[in-house]
Design a protein around this nucleic acid. Structure first.
Lengths: 131, 131
DNA sequence: ACATCTATTGACGCTAACGTCAATTACTTG
DNA sequence: CAAGTAATTGACGTTAGCGTCAATAGATGT
């Protein structure tokens, strides 16, 4: 059962993922050493499954948003949180709210910055129109 | 005229700005050394004006959005760009568009991340409601 | 069997972004 | 004027996030 199951699963090599996301294999190994990824080993070779790939996507998005790897680790843990104990669930809710607040602030920053740049763009275009 | 003008201008000491924005004086000096800030000197002491303070605000927002100091320097240059030459104006427009695209991508990342976390929050709240 | 390619690890190097420190100078206050 | 506080600079230290390298192992093709 398990074997059949894993036979069906889509698997990825480290070089394939590196190429797909335009990062180095060093980066992926580094993320593993930082506890962000948990690939299986076949022989000594890392093998990643879809879940690993999904986590990598989240990691890279977190980085694009300027979060540190530690913050991203915290963020990833929200996906894995043990929801069977109410105490854990309360904690999870707290962390999710915290992160949502952070994202809300970033959204505000982005909107402000975008507005300012759009204003500059408008003025520049007017300048060009005048010749 | 100039003297009277500067007498009216609001000025800031390095420690005041550091405290206001919850950063160190070292950070502010570092930004100056990186060409992001250009405070005047009174005696040997740095004196910042409103424009410096405004630039610092932009710097810190850029950092919150995950940009490097180099990228922030580029961004700041959009505010200072010489708009008297059409060639410069075209370049400015190009840079503004580039940055707007970046911000748009970040906005998308933020929305995606926010949606995912909101979904987790919803599930968590349902879990708590069930007791 | 050998050459080539890919993957591994540990370790050192590099850059960015400051923090910390010591020595010195400048400013403020009593 | 002295004491206290603030600011200065240069230099070294630290952390984060990798890049690069060498040595080794495994896989593949001829």
């Amino acid at each position: 059962m398990n074997r059949i199951d894993s036979d069906k699963q889509e698997l990825y090599a480290i070089a394939g993922l590196a190429k797909e996301f335009d990062i180095s294999t060093r980066t992926i190994r580094f993320y593993e050493s930082k506890g962000l990824l948990f690939p299986r080993r076949v022989g000594g070779t890392r093998v990643f499954n879809k879940r690993d790939r999904a986590r990598l996507i989240l990691i890279l998005r977190g980085k694009r948003l300027g979060f540190s790897l530690k913050e991203i680790e915290e963020y990833l843990s929200l996906y894995d949180a043990d929801q069977t104990h109410d105490a854990q669930v309360e904690k999870l809710l707290e962390m999710v709210n915290l992160r949502l607040d952070l994202l809300k602030e970033q959204m505000q920053d982005l909107k402000t910055t975008t507005s300012e740049l759009s204003e500059i763009k408008k003025l520049v275009k007017q300048r060009l129109a005048r010749g």
